[in-house]
Design a protein around this nucleic acid. Structure first.
Lengths: 113, 113, 113, 113
DNA sequence: GTGGTCTAGACCACT
DNA sequence: GTGGTCTAGACCACA
C-alpha cells in the first residue's frame, strides 16, 4: 500500500514483505544481504538496513551475527495475519468511504479483478 | 484516503473536498474562514491556509479579498471527476494488488457495504 | 547500564531515560530538539534521532509534527517499571553470579552506598 | 557479565574464565581443544580461537605448538584479581547508579543471595 | 563475507 | 523553527 511518494525504506519493507507473503523467502531462508538488496534497488545500504530492522523488531527475521538475516518460523503466517488486520481495520474503511463519496460503482471497479 | 498519520494539511484538504462533494459547500457558498476552520479542527491557521491554497490553485475556489473564499461554479463536478480519476488510476490498482497478496476475500470485504 | 563501549545512540537513550526518571523531563514537557541535543552531546543529529525514535516506538514520547517531541502521560512510571523489570530479570542475576564467582564481599561493596 | 546479546567470543571468554576461577581448569591443565570447545558450545572454531587468543595475550595460558593450550601458574589468582578490579572500578559504580535511579531496594535485591 | 554504527551534509514536509 | 529521510563514505565487530 505504498506509492512512489512513500519513504524509500517503507517501500523496501513492502517489497520484502511481499517476498515473504509470496513464499519467495521461506522460514529458514536467508534474506538478500543488505548490500545486495541495496544494489538491486538502487538504494543506500543504510536505507535497506532500516527496512530490515523493522522486520527484526517485529520478530519476523533474526540476525545471525556476521552471517546474515534469516526468516523465522511462522513469519509468513504472522505477517499475513498482521497485514490483513491492518488492511481491514485501517485501509478498507477509508476505501469504502472514498468509493461512496465519489459515487463509484463497485461492479465496475471489480470488473477487471 | 487519509488516516491519522497523514499530514494535517492533507486531512484538512480531504475534509474540505468531502464537504464540496457532499454538497455542504455549493458553488457560490463561502467556505468557513481560516480561523474558524482551524479552531473547529484544532489545527494551526497556517496549516489550514495551506490546505485552502491548494483548492485555490486547482481552481475550485476563489478568493474575494477581505471577504472570504467562495466555491466556484462547476467545482463539485470537476473535483469529483479528478478524484475519481486519481482513485481509479492510482489507488485502486494498489488496493487490488494488496487484496490479492493477502489473499483476502472480496465478497467478505464487500459484505458490509 | 551502558559503558563507553556501547553504541552512542544507546548511551544517548540512557541519558534521556535518566532525565525522564529523574523528573527533568515530565509528561507534557518538550524534549530538547534533536539538533540541540546533538550539539550538547557532540553527536550527529541522526544518531540522536535514532535514540529518540526508540522512545517513540515504546510509547514514551509523541511527535507533534513540525513542533517537537513531548513526554507522554505515564511515561515515567511505565519507563521505571520496564527498566526495573529488565534490571531484575536480566542484569541482577548476572551481577550475583559475577560477585559469587569472584568471591567478592557484599558488605564491602555496599559500604559506600 | 555477558548476556545472550553479547558477542559470542566474549561469552566464550567468560565461560573459560569461569572455568579457571572455579578451579575446573588448574595451572598445568590443558584447555579443551578449539574444536572440542566449539562443538560443545555450538560456536564457530574461529570464534573460539579468538576467545582463546585473548587469554594467551593476557598471559593466562600458553600455547604448546602441536599439543594444545595450558593454564599457566598463577593464572587463577591473577585472573581473579583483574576481574575483581574491573568489577569494582567499572561495573559496580554503574550498578549502584542504576539501582538508585530506579529506586530499587537493596535489601530486597539481596534477599535471594 | 555479514550486519551495525557513525559522520557530514543535504533536502523535505510540517507548523 | 521542528523532525524525517536519504546519500556517500567510512570503520568496526563478527563468523
Amino acid at each position: 500500500m505504498h506509492n512512489e511518494d512513500s519513504p524509500v525504506y517503507l517501500r523496501l519493507r513492502g517489497a520484502i514483505a511481499a517476498g515473504i507473503l509470496r513464499g519467495e523467502y521461506r522460514p529458514g531462508d536467508q534474506l538478500p544481504s543488505v548490500r545486495a538488496f541495496a544494489a538491486e534497488h538502487g538504494a543506500n545500504p543504510l536505507t535497506v538496513a532500516k527496512a530490515y530492522q523493522g522486520f527484526q523488531d517485529d520478530g519476523y527475521v533474526e540476525v545471525r551475527r556476521g552471517i546474515g538475516m534469516f526468516v523465522l518460523p511462522g513469519a509468513p503466517e504472522r505477517l499475513r495475519a498482521a497485514e490483513r488486520e491492518t488492511f481491514r481495520r485501517v485501509h478498507w474503511p477509508r476505501i469504502v468511504e472514498a468509493v461512496e463519496l465519489l459515487d463509484l460503482n463497485w461492479d465496475e471497479l471489480l470488473e477487471r479483478v
